[in-house]
Design a protein around this nucleic acid. Structure first.
Length: 270
DNA sequence: ATAGGCCTGGAC
DNA sequence: GTCCAGGCCTAT
């Protein structure tokens, strides 16, 4: 389940599977993916040697020796399954990469909202992303500059990937709770001190989710493992449950079309 | 800023 | 059946 920490975990598995490998086939199993990459184009990937696997925000890039780039985005539900040729890909496998060592990687995505795109050698994907949360150049002053022109509330601003890359609805809410900031506070109204606290909260939340061990459980055939352990959450999806700081029932509201969870008592900064 | 669309499955 | 979903784009 894919915000930055989950995508990071997935991209590591992808890297392990693809490192040093050559693609022998890419098969697209869902029409929504075939609309983005024609089967003819998918076939041109056979013979491409992988030279790098990168994450930027929630995006994943597989770079090939010929300069082409395969761009993947999980959207709501995507994940990678890694198995062997001959293993049946799991239900909801939407694309399958076959590799020259007899292994297979499948994009598993029940809702079929994930995207794949294949870029030509001279066409670097334009991702329009802000800094990663751990970017040393990102400090309270930089965040203040990014938020200054905004009219809206802080929570939707944190979901804007051009402000910070990788936060999604869960970790944005978690970060605001940790920093005691009201999700409805106007983004431009936050003091530099608030933003320093918010940045530390974001980093702590992401670090906890990324560094924390995920219990892997085998799903389907041999060889496929999934990270199937949701991280510990303080506010997300805890409506009416007691705030872990002050005991006040957690509230839920809709903001920019997304559920927002917060403590109405202790998230009053700004 | 909100609503709708993309897709499908799970909870109720 | 209805509503909801960790993302993101487009239209109003």
């Amino acid at each position: 389940m894919p915000e930055l920490p989950e995508v990071e975990e997935a991209v590591r598995r992808l890297r392990r599977a693809l490192d040093g490998r050559t693609i022998t086939a890419l098969r697209l199993l869902h029409p929504a993916l075939r609309r983005r990459v024609s089967s003819v184009r998918a076939r041109t990937l056979a013979g491409a040697r992988v030279v790098g696997v990168e994450r930027r925000g929630k995006h994943q890039l597989v770079r090939f020796a010929d300069g082409r780039v395969l761009h993947a985005h999980f959207r709501m539900n995507g994940d990678w399954w890694v198995g062997r040729e001959g293993d049946a890909p799991p239900p909801h496998a939407r694309a399958v990469l076959s590799l020259d060592d007899g292994s297979r990687v499948a994009l598993v995505d029940s809702r079929a909202l994930a995207t794949l795109a294949l870029y030509d050698a001279d066409a670097e994907p334009a991702l329009a992303l802000g800094p990663e949360p751990d970017d040393p150049l990102l400090d309270a002053a930089a965040l203040e500059r990014a938020l200054a022109p905004r009219r809206g509330a802080i929570k939707p601003a944190l979901l804007d990937q051009r402000v910070i890359a990788g936060l999604g609805n869960i970790y944005a809410a978690e970060s605001l709770w940790r920093a005691r900031i009201d999700p409805f506070a106007p983004a431009a109204s936050l003091s530099r001190r608030d933003l320093g606290r918010l940045l530390r909260a974001i980093r702590a939340v992401i670090r906890r989710a990324t560094g924390g061990r995920y219990r892997s459980s085998t799903i389907g055939g041999a060889g496929g493992t999934f990270a199937a352990r949701p991280p510990r959450l303080d506010v997300y999806d805890r409506e009416d449950e007691p705030c872990r700081r002050c005991g006040t029932p957690i509230a839920r509201a809709v903001q920019a079309g997304r559920s927002t969870y917060f403590c109405p008592e202790c998230q009053r900064e700004a």
